[in-house]
């Protein structure tokens, strides 16, 4: 495989984590403009762990993901009872605070004769774990997809459990769910924790793949794109957000068909698509049809 293709594939993989993170909250009925904050936390924490503390990659990614999840939990305590635009704005406010905090964050130390660490607006450079340990681009790409597949598999399994159905019930009508005995606040809290951890994992991968992360890497554009991917690809299944990422980055950006006019084409397409399918291509209706068709085929095969 050539380098360009691997780069594009890696990008799709990394952005998918943030898209899945926004998707988890969308399922619970909350619109977050701030999942990029947890992506940033994961990136910085995991980067610091491998560069400054010389941790192995797996431990660093896990720690970054946990730190992001913990932050999401704390933010959730303060924001989860808000709804609609109030929740969206509170999450955006938190994400902007974190981005500016990263601009102010300087933590430099001498590591093996090189001055390393986050350096304010200039960001955190030389996160060279993959390089130092002689991973090939293909191998790093495989690591991204192995982790993405794991997260997707977990999400798909959860969606088929009672808890997954509860999440969807809360997303559609929280009051009705509550009347039926579902503790809306605690389910939303678990969703927020999970969403934060997923975004944090993506951030940790990003920092190591790109070898740097800067405050600009997780501005509002990342958050709103992540939200849009779920709505483009569809909210009926966890594959929806991935499809959204594939359409945007995979089809439009990488093929450069509309070079220089990509957003003019893409923006118009998305607006028209949403008119036809307000909950995306793979929405609940489409997913239900596909499931029934598959079941019929399986039954016929028996």
């Amino acid at each position: 495989m050539d380098g360009y293709l691997i780069t594009i594939l890696s990008n799709i993989g990394m952005v998918s984590f943030v898209a899945l993170s926004a998707y988890i909250l969308l399922l619970s009925g909350q619109i977050s403009f701030g999942q990029q904050a947890y992506f940033g936390i994961g990136a910085y924490v995991a980067g610091i762990a491998t560069v400054m503390w010389q941790w192995p990659l797996a431990g660093a990614l896990l720690f970054g993901s946990l730190a992001a999840g913990a932050a999401a939990g704390l933010v959730g305590l303060a924001t989860l009872r808000l709804s609609g635009i109030y929740f969206a704005m509170a999450t955006l406010a938190f994400a902007e605070i974190m981005r500016i905090a990263a601009e102010l964050f300087v933590y430099r130390r001498d590591i093996g004769g090189i001055e390393s660490g986050p350096d304010g607006v200039d960001g955190f450079r030389d996160i060279r774990y993959f390089f130092a340990n002689e991973f090939s681009p293909l191998e790093t790409c495989l690591i991204v997809y192995a982790l993405l597949a794991t997260v997707l598999a977990i999400l798909c399994i959860i969606e088929r459990t009672r808890a997954g159905r509860m999440l969807r019930q809360i997303g559609e009508d929280p009051l009705l769910a509550e009347v039926h005995g579902i503790n809306v606040m605690s389910v939303r809290m678990i969703a927020a924790l999970a969403a934060g951890a997923v975004a944090g994992l993506g951030g940790g991968l990003y920092a190591h793949l790109m070898t740097y992360v800067e405050p600009k890497s997780f501005d509002i554009m990342l958050g709103v794109h992540a939200l849009a991917y779920g709505l483009i690809g569809g909210l009926g299944t966890a594959f929806g957000p991935i499809l959204g990422v594939l359409i945007d980055i995979g089809l439009l950006e990488s093929t450069r068909i509309f070079h220089g006019y990509r957003m003019i084409v893409f923006g118009g397409l998305v607006a028209v698509l949403l008119i036809v399918r307000p909950r995306g291509l793979l929405d609940e209706v489409a997913v239900s049809r596909i499931r029934r068709a598959l079941r019929r085929r399986r039954d016929a095969g028996d």
Partner: peptide
């Protein structure tokens, strides 16, 4: 809202 974001980009 997401459609309005798409038009923002456009």
């Amino acid at each position: 809202m997401v459609a309005s974001f798409a038009l923002w980009m456009q």
